[in-house]
Design a protein around this nucleic acid. Structure first.
Length: 677
DNA sequence: CGGCGAATAT
DNA sequence: GATATTCGCC
């Protein structure tokens, strides 16, 4: 089959122009129509009104056709018979066509090997897609065969521990108490049909290992912190840098997120770019996809994918007591998050893509909670109680992003008690590395969290989702290699980072991803609120604090950046860029929900510092965008963005100006759904 | 039953 | 090749 670039109105990437299709229908009119439509799709069409003839043609010209479309009701031979014979004698995909949509007939067609069953009158849209059957015909057939087998003889389907299922599991475990949680009891509590004790037992084993890993890492962190005096600048620095990104490193499994696992520096990046992560279209057969937000994979067809909600009153029994929960950010994040990342522009010119992601309402940002940058060093602090600086409520959610951007502001940190320490540390780290650290990564510090007992239960989640809507992730990827490469404490730092993020991430679960989930046990018991409340409004304090360091201004960083000319820098800058943008997006997205970001101060102070790097440009954009958010979607609010944009783009051009188109563009980017201007 | 490790599947 | 799941045995 010839596969060429898609034709105009086709939304498929690859369209098989010239695919040889044999159309069979006893009704001349129908046949003509079918032929016309098929030709319009640019297929190479051959027609016949007799099934017998069709069969003969197929037999005589083996390999001369790529696909067969046959009517079901034909005088000379039943369409099903033809289907059967074709399936028997040749390996060609057959699509049944009938005016009768009787489910039984459809089923019969499918069971007989039809790869599709179209109803008359057939629409061209349907025909445009039939070629896809040709691509995975074998797979389809296999699937069909399985689906119709007798359940008793069918192989036991593998249990897919979806997020929901896992959540139920955790809820059950928490309810029972980790010590008393045994497979049988958990199974009963979960009340999920078709799930077996063995399934639960297996998952429990895995879960225990997971907890163990976490605790181990936590201890290491704690020890390290103790050894280093906790004030070690570089430690914190790195910690924050790697932050969230780390969970994405490591294997790919239900619990792989655990940040404490092996941390290949390239893992995350690779993952982000992997098809699975980005959400490829096509056959949902990979575990990752299955675990995604929506289970569409065949596996879920067995019922395991559809669990009845099990009411879980606040599970205060924290199964993970004393443990630094880790993160599982992956799992918590939503598919949207994935898309979100995928659409992150890499270049300035792509900024226009903002709207796309901002449309997502479930972006979960981690709200930093503790004031102490050291919180991350879990274990001891194990911030189970929020000590934020006063996040009032969920409204402030999304602060995170603003925080990241905010960290850029040199003067912002003064608000945080620990900033002094942070600053020193941070600057040192930066200098020693010779690379300006990404201010954004600092966010991670915030993430430290405050683990809410109730929320913790969710932490173990399923990692399937590799999405990372968290800007931090992105940044960490890029920065990690550069900053930590030769650091001996690298591993430890990373570990620390991870754990520190755990808290927030966990919180995210219920608040973000889970938010829109029907069966979210945490969403209906007030946990969300508690979590939110635990998030300090100024959660960013520590991060920003670091930036206070007079020697660590953006400017300085920028300078080192450009002076080093290393390839890595380039990448780094881009990543940062993405990160920033993602932050912006997050912020923007939140804005739609009416979140106020009182960070004007940052913005204002920042505006005066314009450096021509992408990073700076983006950061400015972010800040201004935030400002814009504060004021609402008005053009006037956007002007400043444009101004800054110009300033950054043309550092030495003061007399910049913008026009209404620019304003509109920016506005559209920020508020894609906003009609008013 | 629960826990483990081997055997498989993905 | 690494993991995740299931199988079998104690």
């Amino acid at each position: 089959m010839t596969v060429e670039q898609g034709i105009g109105n086709s939304n498929i990437d690859q369209f098989p122009i010239g695919m040889r299709v044999l159309a069979v229908d006893d009704d001349p009119t129908c046949l003509l129509l079918l032929e016309t439509l098929l030709r319009r799709c640019q297929y190479n069409v051959t027609t016949t009104s007799q099934a017998i003839t069709a069969l003969r043609m197929l037999r005589e010209n083996k390999n001369k056709f790529d696909l067969v479309i046959s009517d079901v009701h034909m005088p000379d031979m039943d369409g099903f018979k033809l289907l059967e014979l074709v399936g028997l004698e040749m390996d060609l995909p057959v699509i049944m066509l009938s005016a009768n949509g009787d489910p039984k007939l459809v089923m019969k067609g499918i069971t007989h090997g039809a790869c599709d069953y179209l109803l008359k009158p057939v629409r061209i849209e349907e025909l445009k897609n039939i070629w896809q059957h040709n691509e995975d015909e074998d797979e389809d057939r296999d699937e069909n065969e399985h689906e119709d087998e007798d359940p008793t003889t069918q192989k036991k389907p593998r249990v897919v521990w979806s997020v929901d299922l896992h959540r139920k599991f955790v809820a059950a475990v928490n309810q029972l108490g980790i010590d008393k949680a045994v497979p049988k009891k958990i199974l009963d509590l979960m009340n999920v049909e078709k799930l077996t004790r063995e399934n639960v037992a297996s998952h429990l084993q895995k879960y225990r290992l997971y907890l163990k890993r976490i605790s181990t890492v936590a201890n290491q962190q704690a020890n390290m912190v103790a050894a280093l005096g906790s004030s070690d600048a570089s430690y914190l620095q790195m910690n924050s840098m790697n932050g969230l990104g780390l969970h994405n490193l490591g294997g790919s499994g239900q619990f792989h997120n655990t940040p404490f696992r092996s941390l290949p520096s390239s893992g995350m990046l690779g993952r982000l770019n992997s098809p699975a992560v980005l959400g490829i279209r096509g056959i949902p057969s990979s575990g990752v996809i299955q675990l995604g937000h929506v289970q569409t994979a065949p596996h879920s067809a067995h019922g395991l994918g559809h669990f009845q909600p099990v009411g879980h009153p606040g599970n205060n029994g924290n199964i993970l007591q004393g443990m630094p929960m880790s993160l599982e950010l992956d799992q918590i994040q939503s598919n949207k998050g994935v898309n979100y990342i995928r659409e992150l522009p890499t270049h300035l010119d792509d900024t226009a893509s903002f709207p796309v992601s901002s449309g997502s309402t479930d972006m979960k940002i981690i709200a930093g909670s503790s004031n102490s940058p050291f919180v991350g060093v879990s274990n001891k602090p194990l911030m189970l109680e929020g000590h934020g600086q006063g996040l009032q409520d969920g409204q402030n959610f999304g602060k995170q992003s603003s925080l990241s951007a905010g960290s850029l502001d040199p003067g912002y940190s003064s608000h945080f008690p620990d900033h002094g320490r942070c600053n020193d540390n941070w600057s040192n780290a930066v200098q020693s590395n010779g690379v300006q650290s990404n201010s954004f990564t600092l966010n991670d510090c915030f993430k430290q969290p405050t683990l809410h007992p109730s929320a913790i239960g969710d932490s173990m989640s399923t990692p399937a989702l590799q999405s990372r809507n968290n800007p931090c992730d992105v940044s960490s990827i890029s920065t990690l290699p550069i900053h930590l490469q030769d650091s001996k404490a690298d591993l430890q730092c990373r570990a620390a980072t991870m754990s520190s993020n755990a808290g927030p991430i966990i919180n995210n679960g219920p608040l973000g991803w889970d938010d829109h989930r029907q069966n979210d046990p945490y969403n209906s018991n007030g946990i969300s609120n508690s979590i939110n409340s635990a998030i300090p409004l100024n959660g960013n304090g520590s991060l920003i604090g670091r930036n206070l360091d007079p020697n660590n201004t953006i400017f300085q960083r920028t300078t080192s950046f450009s002076s080093t000319g290393q390839p890595n820098f380039v990448d780094t800058s881009l990543m940062k860029h993405n990160e920033v943008e993602s932050s912006a997006m997050e912020t923007l997205g939140r804005s739609k929900d009416g979140y106020l970001l009182n960070q004007q101060k940052l913005q204002d102070s920042y505006v005066s510092n314009n450096f021509g790097s992408l990073e700076d440009l983006v950061s400015v954009m972010v800040k201004q965008a935030r400002k814009c958010l504060v004021h609402g979607p008005r053009r006037s609010s956007v002007s400043c963005i444009i101004d800054d944009f110009d300033i950054v783009t043309r550092p030495h051009t003061e007399g910049k100006s913008h026009n209404s188109n620019q304003e509109k563009w920016v506005l559209d980017c920020l508020f894609p759904n906003n009609n008013s201007t």
